[in-house]
């Protein structure tokens, strides 16, 4: 079994984390940039732009977070396996 100071994960590759950072920054900054959307036209099924544009960002954010999840999970798994070496996850328990 592992001794107290053994790291839980191997060293990180920056790629997936940088991409994730960019995706999540977009998901935070764009919906908060009010000047871009505080207008009435164009309306969509009677809804002013201000309202439908913000609602539209809900699924977009969801997708951005979903892609981030996929990227981070893949990297996370690789880092864990690099530490465990040949030990299978089943034995680790």
């Amino acid at each position: 079994m592992s001794s107290p100071d053994v790291p839980t994960r191997g060293p990180a590759r920056s790629g997936p984390y940088v991409i994730t950072g960019i995706l999540l920054t977009i998901a935070i900054v764009v919906p908060l940039f009010v000047p871009a959307y505080s207008v009435d036209e164009p309306r969509w099924v009677g809804m002013p732009f201000f309202y439908w544009y913000q609602m539209m960002w809900i699924p977009i954010t969801s997708a951005l977070v979903g892609v981030s999840y996929w990227l981070v999970i893949k990297e996370d798994r690789r880092r864990r396996e690099s530490v465990r070496g040949l030990t299978s996850p089943g034995e680790e328990r």
Binding site: A27, P31, L32, T61
Partner: peptide, 28 residues
Amino acid sequence: GAVTGFFAVPYTIVLYPIVFLLMSRLWS
């Protein structure tokens, strides 16, 4: 109207990237 009410929508949008970044470290 919008300022006191509809801000709840961007609020609950930007919430999740923030949760994604912070909460798994706290969990661990």
